[in-house]
Structure formats: structure tokens, C-alpha cells
Amino acid sequence: MRAVGAASDELGETRFEVLVPRALAGERQAWEALVDRLKRVAWRSIAGFDLGDEDRKDAFAATFFRLNERLSTIREPAKLPGWVATTARNEVHTLLRARRRLRATDPQDLPLVPQPAISDEGLMDDELHGAVRLGFASLSSRCQELLRLATLDPPLSYAEIGDLMEMPHGSIGPTRQRCLDQLRSTAALRPFIAGR
């Protein structure tokens, strides 16, 4: 399958305006490239909810099922990241409600809040990364959500982030700033910064 992967990689930087018609024409690599360009937007949009791993994967998959079935109706391909983020959020809300309704009486079934995986295996390439990871994990869930959405590639606009977080668009920039300041002053980063 090397050829497929390589072809998909070659499409990695291709604009959505080009990828969408090619995927619609049945070009499998174009669809694969769309998934790869948008998967982080979808995955991060559904982080931090009271959802188990399997439910989160279901919401993720459903987002791409919908994208695939709606592809021919996409009028502005450049807005795809925002569309995907919103669709993924809607899937989560539907799932959360369905879970609560069907299983609210069984605490065994209450999903765990996903925690960032902490590993000793040196995934990070230096101490800075480790400190940022710990600092990020200690931020408020609101700051984590905003920073998750504000560090995407392709990026979401402040307007799109504001809609997802139900915050005024104009407050996203200042809030992002405040969250970064909080990150710099976390226990994980403070000594790191002061020591340099």
C-alpha cells in the first residue's frame, strides 16, 4: 500500500478547493488526503467531553461519514475545518444525550473523562516539551479546550472557535493570551522559565 500512502502524502498540501471535486469524482487518494487534513480538527473538537474511547471514536467516524455524504453540497471548501468542528461537536452532544438517557442508572457505564496520556517513553524530544505537556494538563478545562482549538493546522478562525465555545468572537484573542500566560506560570513551566 506504499503507493497509496505516497500519493496521499503528495496531496497533503493541496487546497480543499481542489481536493473536494477530486474526491467527489471518486479519487480515493483525494478523500484520504481530506481525512488526513481534517482528522485533527475533528478529534480535538471532541476532546475533553464525558465520553469513553469508543464513543469518541464513533463521534469521529460519524463526522466523516457525514462529510462524505454531504461532500457534494459543500459550497465553500475553505470553510471545511469549521464545518467539521461543528459537525463533530453535534455528534458528541447527540451521543452524550443518548448515553445519559439509556444508561443513566448504571454508574458502571459512566464514561471516564479522557486524560492526556503521560508516558515515560520519551515521546517528547526534550524537556521543554515535557514541561509544556505537564503545564497544559494542569490548566483549566476551558483553557485546554481553547488552546486545543487555537493550535490546529489547518487553523480555525476566531469566529469559528467562538461559535464552538459559545464565547464572543472578540474575546477569543484575549482569552488565548490569558491562557498562554497561565501556562507560563504553571508549576511545570515557572521554574523552567525562571531558571533560564
Partner: peptide, 15 residues
Amino acid sequence: LLAVLARVIDEADPV
């Protein structure tokens, strides 16, 4: 910091 965060978040919670 934002650039490091982008990587850290992907590595801590990959698709």
C-alpha cells in the same frame, strides 16, 4: 509556545 503546544497536544492525544 503555540507551536510546541500543537505538537504536545497531538502527541498526548493522537488520532
